[in-house]
């Protein structure tokens, strides 16, 4: 379980670095975020929800059954869109309304 940061998209704002509960993300001298301790990621997804550029993707390690899909979030119209991209290019999106309670 870990994250993947798209260098192209990252603007070095440092918000992911600020929120990570494990202090695992650092900003390098080129103002790009990177995960310094990938094996220490808890998978809380705080960093990706925080990223203004949707640069952070999260995946399941192969050791826990990951199959190479990446998930990230985008926000618009008061909704959080969770977008899963599969290795074959297909995607699934689930929209969450933060103002709505869980049904369960």
């Amino acid at each position: 379980m870990s994250i993947y940061i798209d260098e192209e998209k990252c603007i070095g704002c440092g918000r992911c670095h600020e929120v990570c509960p494990g202090t695992l993300i650092k900003i390098d001298e080129n103002k790009k975020a990177y995960i310094k301790y990938p094996k220490d990621c808890w998978g809380c997804t705080s960093c990706l929800k925080e990223c203004p550029k949707n640069a952070i993707r999260f995946y399941l390690g192969a050791d826990i059954g990951g199959k190479g899909s990446l998930v990230h979030t985008e926000k618009s119209d008061g909704l959080v869109h969770w977008i899963v991209e599969r290795p074959d290019g297909s995607t699934t999106t689930i929209d969450i309304n933060p103002k709505e309670s869980n049904k369960y």
């Binding site: 379980m1 998978g43 059954g65 899909s69 998930v71 699934t92 689930i94 969450i96 869980n102 049904k103």
Partner: peptide, 21 residues
């Protein structure tokens, strides 16, 4: 659908797992 959403709000890895499998 409610389950997939509920897990995104607390343990997103499970929803990813379901979608992947």
């Amino acid at each position: 659908e409610s389950l997939l959403k509920a897990y995104l709000n607390m343990a997103p890895s499970q929803t990813l797992r379901w979608i992947e499998n």
